[in-house]
Amino acid sequence: MSYSQGIASQTSQAILDALNHLIEVVAKLRSPEGGCPWDLAQTPQTLIPYVIEEAYEVVDAIKSENPKAIAEELGDLLLQVVLQAQIAQEYGHFSLQEVAQGITEKLIRRHPHVFGDVQVEDAEQVRQNWEKIKAAEKGETVQESELLSHKLSRYARTLPPLMAGSKISHKAAAVGFEWENVAGVWEKFEEELGEFKEALQTDDKIHQRAELGDLLFTLINIARWYGLDPSEALQETNHRFVQRFSKVESLAKRPLNQYNLEELEAFWKKAKAQLNQ
């Protein structure tokens, strides 16, 4: 064994030791004898919000380019994987070992140009092979897997709603499902706004939700026409609101609920002006 191989072996063992320790800690937290009541009360369904939240926090950390923050958030996301696997094992469904083996086998199977004798010339050929292999795994023909409705359905099921709406809008427009000009989109917006207002006059929450969804989807289409990313736009607005709200709290001398609306509005304007300087 060479020196470099020895170092790699030691590193791999250290990684395995750390992962095993994490697995043991999670198992202890889920133990009926001396475990944590909160962890014991969790199910795969109750943990869904945490999986989503931790994934977004990983993205935020990556954008910050702070290695320490990235490592911490990846750890939080890894915890969700281990916790889901622990609960599944308790139910007799699958184990973390099966999760790791499954993704390893999938990577090998979908990269025959690396682990087999398939020859590829570029990344596009890799993508095409990937899609063929993926379709075969799911018992579909390549034609079925390439149906646009098939892809749109996957976006709607798996992506955050705003992101899914944006991708669905772009993909549908690319095949001609599109307005002739932006004026048509604005007309659609006015139509959907009117229908939403009408729905609000009723007590039918399902109808109200449907009309609100139509209105939001039309706004997404407007954003696409102007080359804007609605997810980024809303995220920036969220950040601005929090910054201004923080400034309002710093200006206030007592709890905000002790001020009237006019006083709060004055704080808000002052905060906005200060942040714009």
Rank of each mutant, 00 (worst) to 15 (best):
N66W: 02
G35Q: 02
E178H: 05
V25A: 10
V118Q: 07
L79W: 12
I133S: 04
F241C: 06
I206L: 09
E105Y: 13
I103N: 05
V25Y: 06
R254T: 07
V118T: 15
I87H: 06
E54Q: 12
A173H: 06
G92M: 06
G116P: 00
K205S: 08
V51F: 07
F94H: 11
A135S: 13
M1Y: 05
A123Y: 05
E90Q: 14
R154H: 12
N66S: 08
A61I: 01
R154C: 02
L29H: 07
S145D: 09
A271T: 07
A174P: 00
Q89E: 15
L228A: 15
V51N: 04
E187S: 07
L251E: 08
L256E: 04
L264E: 06
L147V: 11
S31G: 07
V26L: 04
A8L: 14
L40F: 07
V114H: 03
I133P: 02
I52G: 03
K269D: 11
A55L: 02
L22A: 15
A266K: 10
A233V: 14
L83N: 09
H150K: 13
K134C: 10
A100D: 02
A174N: 09
T141I: 11
Q128F: 12
A271P: 04
K138S: 08
E249K: 14
L215I: 05
Q10V: 11
L275A: 10
V25T: 12
H93D: 13
L215N: 01
E57G: 03
N257F: 04
S4C: 03
A69V: 05
L159K: 14
L148G: 06
D17C: 03
I7P: 02
P32D: 01
I220G: 09
D122P: 00
S31M: 04
N66G: 00
E249I: 09
Q143E: 15
L216R: 08
D122I: 01
G139R: 08
E65F: 01
S231I: 02
